[in-house]
């Protein structure tokens, strides 16, 4: 529908009702789409597995601002997440809601929080953990994902940003919890994943938040933005538009240089930013696998699709995870969620 008209007389076209209701209405829509997987924690913007808490299993929870769908609630289900908290668009969930999620997902074996590295997210998760510990006897640990190799510090972070690599941390932690590992062991495995994963993204267009109704940065017709995050923040470098192979080379060289890969087996994700045709993601993936092959690096598994998006941004990110036997087993274990089935 036509939602707003800005001062310049241009229109933001989005399929929304009231911009204040987007998160809540999305969550309700997810619940009715996947009632066998998810339910809404009453009075909150938290979704949990339909059968949470799972008795005796460590709960794996995550959360963050909305606008990154299917992250995070799309990964609720057997073998991945038990809880996912949705903040307002690009805004951290509040600590009281995170605390309610932690409590609701504790099956008696404790809870691991998977947190993307943004100041607001980290501070709210830390506060929630403190509140949970003040109130009850839930044992809680957290791991911070900072896989974006493009920047050291950014508009929203000290240190690197947490982006698409977070999905692989969900997968590893979720599989370890399903296997019956204890909280400390799962945390170790999650941190091992964080150490071995790198991501870099690019944008063909900016994105438009429902609240502001205009693109968060301006990009010319012949320009692309390299090193973007997932909140519509500008990237680290603006370049003239280049073809898919050149973009792939640029992104993957940066990721590979950062990872200093020693093992020869990796897992990859070519991730769409929300408005990228699958056709283009496959074109990127074609070159990525060719390039890895030239380097003598073998891809064990390569995912292509929208895993961690940035509203209606067109563009992609490339994630590479250096594998070992331990991580491979967990990544290959079954997962049954609305957004991902293994």
């Amino acid at each position: 529908m036509l939602d707003s008209v800005d001062g310049k007389g241009t229109h933001m076209k989005k399929l929304i009702n009231d911009s204040a209701d987007v998160v809540s209405e999305m969550l309700d829509g997810m619940v009715v789409a996947h009632p066998e997987y998810v339910r809404r924690l009453e009075g909150t913007n938290v979704l949990t597995r339909a059968d949470a808490p799972v008795d005796g299993k460590v709960g794996i929870v995550s959360g963050g601002g909305s606008g990154h769908e299917p992250a995070h609630a799309g990964y609720l289900g057997e073998g991945m997440l038990d809880g996912a908290a949705a903040g307002e668009v690009f805004t951290s969930p509040t600590a009281d809601q995170l605390g309610a999620m932690i409590t609701a997902c504790d099956g008696g074996a404790g809870v691991l929080c998977v947190v993307k590295n943004y100041e607001g997210d980290v501070m709210n998760f830390e506060t929630a953990i403190e509140l949970a510990e003040m109130e009850g006897d839930t044992e809680v640990e957290y791991v911070v994902v900072d896989d974006d190799v493009a920047v050291e510090d950014s508009l929203y972070t000290s240190g690197r940003r947490g982006v698409c690599g977070t999905i692989l941390v969900h997968k590893v932690a979720g599989a370890a919890a399903t296997r019956g590992d204890d909280l400390i062991e799962i945390k170790r495995l999650a941190e091992r994943t964080v150490e071995r994963v790198g991501t870099m993204g690019m944008a063909l267009t900016s994105c438009t938040t429902p609240e502001k109704g205009e693109p968060t940065f301006d990009l010319g017709d012949e320009e692309i933005e390299l090193g973007i995050g997932i909140h519509g923040e500008p990237g680290v470098e603006r370049a003239e538009i280049m073809d898919a192979d050149a973009v792939t080379d640029h992104l993957s060289e940066r990721v590979l240089a950062d990872l200093e890969i020693e093992e020869n087996e990796v897992m990859t994700i070519v991730n769409g930013m929300g408005a990228t045709p699958l056709m283009e993601l496959y074109i990127i993936n074609r070159r990525l696998q060719e390039l890895l092959g030239e380097r003598g690096i073998e891809t064990w598994e390569g995912w292509v699709g929208d895993y961690m998006t940035s509203l209606d941004m067109a563009g992609c990110s490339i994630t590479v995870l250096e594998l070992d036997a331990e991580l491979k087993e967990l990544l290959g274990a079954p997962a049954d969620t609305p957004a991902l089935t293994v």
Binding site: E88, T91, S92, T94, A95, Q97, M123, N124, E130
Partner: peptide, 13 residues
């Protein structure tokens, strides 16, 4: 619960 962002934890927490 209501300030949001980093200020919620800093002022409230």
């Amino acid at each position: 619960a209501s300030v949001g962002g980093a200020s919620g934890p800093l002022y409230g927490g």
